[in-house]
Design a protein around this nucleic acid. Structure first.
Lengths: 188, 188
DNA sequence: CTAGATTGTCTAGCGCTGCTAGATTCGGAC
DNA sequence: GTCCGAATCTAGCAGCGCTAGACAATCTAG
């Protein structure tokens, strides 16, 4: 079964490329992630990248997908340790903002850079739906008829906080207060 | 006074460049705004752009500044026509989201693209402070001690809604609901 | 063990980008 | 009309995403 060995090595190299892209993006931002640097980092020539991915955007999309999986995991964990519905909401908020702050480039790939990943439809990737599901679960005790809309609003608020914080457009001194107020508003 | 005429013509050409950049960005997105297309549009060679602006980012920053002025104006107008504090809040929200939806590229330059414009400090440009002041005023009746934090949270929420909507990451069907819930939460 | 086919990889290059040095043309002063 | 300085252009650099075609390594068949 020579084919399966080749297959494995090929898949391994694919992961190597995605890992290199993520590392480079996290270290120097997505602008610094070029096909030439990436090729050098994995010690192959540029065309090899295109035998694994359609183009540069597809590489970033794969990094994003990896991010969705990790986000879904930490959100699930945050939920599982919650003592009460308000605590769950607070944990989700802190975990989400923590994730965005710790992996700014990854967050960029997931939610800011233009991608062709679809949201809120049937074709939405499973990890992304799983992450949304955590939000959905956390808001449930505080939602009336408009549960879906509240979930999207909660997520949007956190996304706004995450991106504006990342762009140094909010005063760091009020960081905790902003979270507290958001939670208080939803939990009454 | 030949000099003053030259000065005027020069300033006029500067505005021409900024206008062309904005037009092109709004029509085809910022990726399509290149020095060559811009030069062709204003019927001068590329180096002329650099006698007006340090680089491409400076042009986008000037477009953004123009946007802040317009945003501040429409927000002030929204406030002036409000019948009650909750109505003021609702008008601000609708106006802000309307502005973002109508001028997506402009909004991008103002709040999404990396710029060296400073936020929330003394060096923050006046139009930007004016826009924030409208938010500040609208939230005032509903704020306790943490008025500043609530203002930033309200803005962040709208920013999150604006960007995620633009990226087709929220379900259009819930658009109105999301706004209603946000206003209800803040106004109790 | 060799010959031929297939697969994998690389070199080289296209058209684009932001930006700039140096040549050239233009406008006003004498 | 001549000169000079300022305004403007031509031409080019290095780097970008992406790809065609050359080449090398590997597997298969005899």
């Amino acid at each position: 079964m020579v084919e399966s060995r080749k297959e494995r090595e090929r898949a391994e190299r694919g992961r190597l490329i995605v890992g290199a892209a993520r590392e480079l993006a996290e270290a120097e931002g997505w602008d610094a992630v070029t096909t030439r640097k990436l090729a050098e980092k994995v010690e192959y020539s540029q065309p090899v990248l295109y035998s694994h991915f359609k183009n540069m955007d597809a590489i970033a999309a794969t990094v994003a997908l990896e991010g969705f999986e990790e986000l879904a995991a930490v959100l699930r964990e945050a939920l599982s340790g919650a003592a009460s519905p308000p605590d769950a909401l607070r944990r989700i908020a802190r975990t989400y903002l923590g994730f965005a702050a710790e992996h700014p480039a990854l967050y960029d790939a997931m939610f800011v850079r233009r991608t062709d990943l679809t949201f809120g439809t049937n074709e939405t990737p499973a990890p992304l739906r799983a992450a949304f599901e955590a939000f959905h679960q956390a808001t449930e005790p505080f939602a009336g008829a408009e549960h879906e809309a509240l979930t999207e609003l909660f997520w949007s608020s956190l996304h706004g906080l995450a991106t504006l914080t990342q762009g140094h457009r909010l005063r760091p001194a009020y960081h905790e207060d902003r979270i507290d107020i958001l939670i208080d508003l939803i939990t009454q």
